[in-house]
């Protein structure tokens, strides 16, 4: 895709907005299901919608609602929410450098709007965007996801049990992750990271709280780092050489 050059942070914001927009198709069925799960857990439409607006983390909301439905104690619900969201610790660490130019309230706002889609797209595009535009691109990418998420959980709660299940629309969720995954496979180590991460997560898919995803990610990262370092020696050896050479 050839895009015209960006002239202002505003341009970067709208570029991010427009590039994430098609991926909101995957969010909508997920939001409908979450709205429905909220009803089953005994929440009313207002509580369900505000939950999405305040939490904005689909998988953890769904897990928490299932636990609330079965009458779990509050600490258990929160612990499950934390475990499901552990991948955000990795996302936040990985993207910290690219969001560093943001000051004041923009940084917590960007953190609040962090999802898989704007994270992966920003990691892919930051070199071409440059440090000035990258944080605005990220922020713009979070907005359509937020609107789609809050809106679709609200509609799911309103429609109740009338959401058709046979359409297979929920398959749009892995498809939108596929769109992000393919460009992340830049070289052999990243391909290895994906294969190991994907297969370990698949093997551990029946673990509770999506723990398999987190463990798989760690295994995949280890595989990528190992393969990269096997080819050219570990990063710390480079650093050692640099030190010996002096400034």
């Amino acid at each position: 895709m050839v895009s015209p050059p960006l002239n202002s942070p505003k341009d970067a914001f709208w570029r991010g907005f427009l590039e994430v927009m098609p991926m909101t198709i995957g969010v909508i069925p997920f939001g409908l299901v979450t709205g429905l799960a909220g009803l089953k857990a005994g929440l009313n439409v207002l509580e369900i919608t505000l939950m999405s607006a305040l939490v904005f983390a689909g998988a953890s909301q769904l897990v928490a609602l299932q636990l609330m439905h079965s009458g779990a104690a509050i600490p258990l619900v929160l612990l499950a929410g934390l475990v499901v969201n552990l991948r955000y610790v990795m996302y936040s660490s990985a993207i910290a450098r690219h969001l560093a130019p943001f000051r004041g309230w923009l940084k917590p706002l960007a953190a609040f709007l962090m999802v898989d889609q704007n994270f992966a797209l920003t990691m892919e595009r930051h070199q071409r965007l440059g440090p000035r535009f990258t944080p605005w691109y990220f922020l713009g990418g979070g907005v359509p996801q937020y609107i789609a998420w809050v809106g679709s959980t609200y509609i799911g709660a309103l429609l109740g049990a009338r959401v058709p299940e046979g359409w297979g629309l929920e398959f749009a969720i892995p498809l939108s992750f596929m769109v992000l995954l393919i460009p992340a496979l830049r070289d052999r180590p990243s391909l290895a990271a994906a294969l190991v991460g994907g297969l370990v997560a698949t093997a551990l898919v029946s673990l509770p709280y999506r723990l398999g995803l987190f463990i798989g990610a760690l295994a995949g990262i280890a595989a990528g780092v190992w393969l990269e370092n096997r080819k050219r020696g570990p990063a710390w050896e480079d650093a050692l050489k640099e030190m010996k050479k002096g400034p």
């Binding site: 990691m123 992000l180 990243s190 391909l191 994906a194 798989g216 990610a217 295994a219 995949g220 990528g224």
Partner: peptide
């Protein structure tokens, strides 16, 4: 390697 490893974990299963 976070994007490749986590996204694959979301797609493969």
């Amino acid at each position: 390697y976070v994007p490749a490893a986590t996204l694959a974990g979301l797609v493969f299963p």
